[in-house]
Design a protein around this nucleic acid. Structure first.
Length: 264
DNA sequence: CTCAGTGTTCAGTG
DNA sequence: TCACTGAACACTGA
């Protein structure tokens, strides 16, 4: 699930439930893949008793600002999520970390495929991996010139460039397909060959799609009806709402849903 | 049983 | 060193 809008929705969830709350208890699963640097035991001991000041996000990374460093950083991988609930009995399956707060709420980090990560860092915003991220479409508003400069001298397909977190932080497979469809650009088009007009459409569409998805807290049932999102997994013979046939190809190493009659 | 998936990293190539 | 590609990682559900 986790692209920019989902992670932003979880940031809001964490911020609402945990801001100015003390961490009374920590559960950390025995999992040295998800806890790839700080051990579960070290994670628990470090966080217990701390107070949460705020939740932050950049790209697909989420971290908590505490009253004392280090701070926890979360990445959700392909199948992670964050949940809030009140009782241990509601702890979701594949829960890798859970914080119990003094207001009674619990925050649970779930990760089925174990491609997600939990780390402890002194200053997540200024050190890798967050410091290596490119512009974040929600936090940063690049000018047309700045945006255009991201595409020049790039020979990779525009779809692959959109997935590059060092360039477009937070854009994942569905956002990339959605914005290319709405901006009417072929996913395979080399980034440097995207025309200035198409580049400007892309900038505006990316801004609009991300803001809209965040405005409904990433609830896809509330995405506008004409978005490709709703039909992109219809698979064979899938069509847009207007009846345009959807095609599936691998671009940038990922399955790409696109509409040849619209994206030229 | 096989395969794909809302992601990232790293080895290998040019 | 840089840009880029494709496989590996891990596990569930179709």
């Amino acid at each position: 699930m986790p692209e920019l809008s989902e992670v932003e929705a979880w940031r809001l969830l964490a911020d609402r439930h945990a801001r100015d709350q003390r961490i009374l208890q920590v559960f950390a699963a025995q999992d040295d893949i998800v806890f790839d640097t700080a051990s579960p035991r070290h994670f628990s001991r470090t966080l217990r008793g701390r107070e949460i000041r705020a939740a932050h996000r950049r790209g697909k990374y989420l971290w908590l600002e505490l009253d004392r460093r280090p701070w926890p950083l979360f990445h959700f991988g392909m199948t992670g999520s964050l949940r809030a609930y009140k009782h241990a009995s509601e702890r979701p399956g594949y829960c890798k970390a859970e914080l119990t707060l003094d207001n009674g709420w619990r925050l649970g980090f779930r990760n089925v495929r174990r491609l997600g990560r939990v780390r402890l860092l002194q200053d997540p915003s200024s050190e890798p991996p967050v410091s290596r991220l490119g512009f974040d479409p929600l936090l940063d508003r690049p000018s047309p010139e700045e945006f255009r400069s991201l595409l020049v001298r790039r020979n990779t397909p525009i779809k692959a460039l959109l997935l590059n977190q060092a360039v477009f932080a937070g854009v994942g497979n569905w956002i990339a397909d959605e914005v290319l469809y709405q901006a009417r650009i072929r996913p395979t088009r080399p980034a440097s060959k995207v025309s200035p007009e198409a580049c400007e459409r892309l900038r505006r569409v990316l801004d609009r799609v991300v803001r809209r998805a965040v405005a409904v807290e990433a609830d896809s049932t509330r995405f506008p009806r004409n978005w490709l999102f709703h039909v992109r997994w219809g698979k064979q013979h899938a069509r847009t709402r207007k009846g345009e046939p959807i095609r599936y190809d691998t671009v940038g190493g990922r399955t790409t849903a696109w509409v040849p009659s619209v994206q030229r």
